[in-house]
């Protein structure tokens, strides 16, 4: 089978429509990063485990590293670049990641924030267990999980423990 056959895809990313011809084996994560140029979405494990490549496809969390681009034809995709409001104002969940130290090295953060947004869209006030169950598909190799959980709680108007070691 030749590698040259291409298929036409039309999909919307962060409100903008893209019509392109792609090889069927073009992974969605590569399409987003290299064909469209939105490099906020990261590729970590490449096997659907780490969650760094999480994007929202028609509002649902998807591993873009396991999605063939033609499978996303016709869908409406949100990446980390499309989470903030159009004027650049951060969503409460983004601000909460900053305020609560919800990241360390940052490589997992686009996936974490995207997953957290999907959680709050689904459940506006998740308890700690619900947060852990939802977010367990997004790994942080720095193990900064407490900050992430705090950020989601804070963004949903819940009381949070003070950041350990932070002075007032």
């Amino acid at each position: 089978m030749s590698d040259t056959n291409k298929v036409a895809v039309k999909l919307t990313i962060n409100g903008q429509t893209y019509e392109k011809e792609v090889k069927p084996n073009r992974l969605l994560v590569d399409f987003i990063r290299y064909d469209v140029g939105l490099t906020g979405t990261k590729e970590g494990c490449s096997v659907g485990v780490c969650g760094a490549c999480t994007v929202l496809v028609d509002g649902k969390m998807v591993s873009s590293c396991l999605t063939l681009t033609p499978m996303a034809n016709g869908t409406d995709i949100t990446t980390i670049e499309g989470i903030a409001k159009a004027d650049g104002e951060l969503l409460p969940i983004q601000q909460a990641f900053i305020d609560q130290g919800g990241f360390q090295c940052g490589i997992c953060t686009p996936g974490q924030v995207t997953a957290a947004k999907a959680l709050l869209d689904f459940n506006s006030k998740p308890n700690e267990q619900e947060i852990k169950e939802w977010m367990m598909g997004n790994l942080c190799r720095c193990t900064g999980y407490y900050g992430i959980i705090r950020a989601i709680k804070a963004a949903s108007g819940q009381e949070v423990e003070p950041i350990p070691g932070a002075s007032d």
Binding site: G48, G51, T54, K60, M61, S63, L66, A115, W134, G137
Partner: peptide
């Protein structure tokens, strides 16, 4: 099964 992200698809 796996994680919610996998179960979604």
């Amino acid at each position: 099964v796996a994680t919610i992200r996998i179960r979604e698809v």
